[in-house]
Computed example of a mutant assay.
Amino acid sequence: MITLPPSERDLHAYVDDQLDQADRAAMETFLAANPEVSEQVRVWQQDAYSLRTGLSGDLHRAPNPQLDPGAVRQRIAQQRRQRFAAAAVLFIAVSLGGVGGWQARSMALIRGTPPMADAVQAYRLFAGNAEMASDWSAIKTRDVQDWLDSHFARANRLPNLASAGFHPVSGRLTATEQGPAALVMYKDEQGRVLSFYIRPPGESNHLLPRGTRRDGELQADYWSDGGYNYAVVARADDPAADAARRAF
């Protein structure tokens, strides 16, 4: 039986359709009276539906439990707990003060989440099928900039990468602890892809100076402006991506 207000575990169980009839009715009554929580649940449901839709062509294969939305959320929760642990180490280091404390702080930051790690993860998840079912696609009549503006007030304009041969083909909303984020996939005539990612800053994603980092075979170029964090992610060794980076 769930508790009210529901825990995060109860909300995930509702999204995954794991509640019995009585608990589900109680949850729906609670959500109707709490629009902010209801919107968060709606975003989770949309992510789960999009993920299942994107994988529907591979249903003949054995199910991969790592791609189940519940498992994905559990991994995110585990990463969140790890970040909280790193923050606790940082607090202890600062409390101790002195050189030793600052050295411990530096070590904690090194072990922490690198800038715009979720942007890189989103690229790895969706780059293999840039035109999969999404919240916006190039075949729809609505302009991608209008779609982005409807969710992110005062955000930067989308990078115009036409000079490098890249054009937006799809966009999708995702969820963060601080609010919605968005991923816009670009593609050129040769099928190469790169992504533009926007998210609100947070406890582990502060406003960032312009920078670049490499993560395996990928390169993330990131910056902040207008109250949001941005990243363009592409293959690090792709000359076409280098041309696109010079365009923004």
Rank of each mutant, 00 (worst) to 15 (best):
G179Q: 05
V193K: 01
D135R: 12
L173C: 07
L194R: 01
A133E: 12
S150L: 07
E177F: 10
F166H: 01
F126L: 12
E177R: 15
R157Y: 14
S134I: 05
D146K: 04
A130C: 09
A133H: 11
Q190T: 11
L158V: 05
Y186C: 03
V184M: 03
K187H: 07
G128I: 05
V184L: 14
I139K: 14
M132A: 12
A153E: 08
N160E: 14
Q190M: 11
P159V: 00
V144T: 02
P159R: 00
A181S: 14
N129T: 12
A181T: 10
R192Y: 15
A138V: 15
D135S: 10
G191Y: 08
A164T: 04
P180N: 09
A130R: 05
V184A: 03
K140P: 06
V193Q: 03
V169R: 07
A127Q: 12
R172I: 09
D143P: 13
A127K: 04
G179D: 04
F126E: 07
D143W: 08
L161T: 01
D149H: 10
V184G: 00
Q145P: 02
H151E: 06
N160T: 09
F152Q: 07
K140H: 14
L161N: 03
M185S: 04
P168G: 06
P180G: 13
L125C: 09
R154L: 10
N160C: 04
S137P: 03
S195A: 07
R172M: 08
S195Q: 01
S163W: 03
G191K: 02
P168R: 01
L125G: 08
D188M: 06
H167K: 12
S170Y: 02
L173D: 00
L194K: 03
V169I: 14
R192G: 13
A155M: 06
S137G: 10
A133I: 13
A164N: 06
V184E: 00
F152M: 05
A164F: 02
N129E: 10
L173T: 04
L183P: 00
L148F: 05
A153V: 11
F166M: 08
G171W: 00
L194V: 05
E131A: 15
A127H: 04
A130D: 02
Q145Y: 08
D149M: 06
H167R: 15
A182C: 03
M185N: 08
R157W: 13
G171K: 00
L125Y: 01
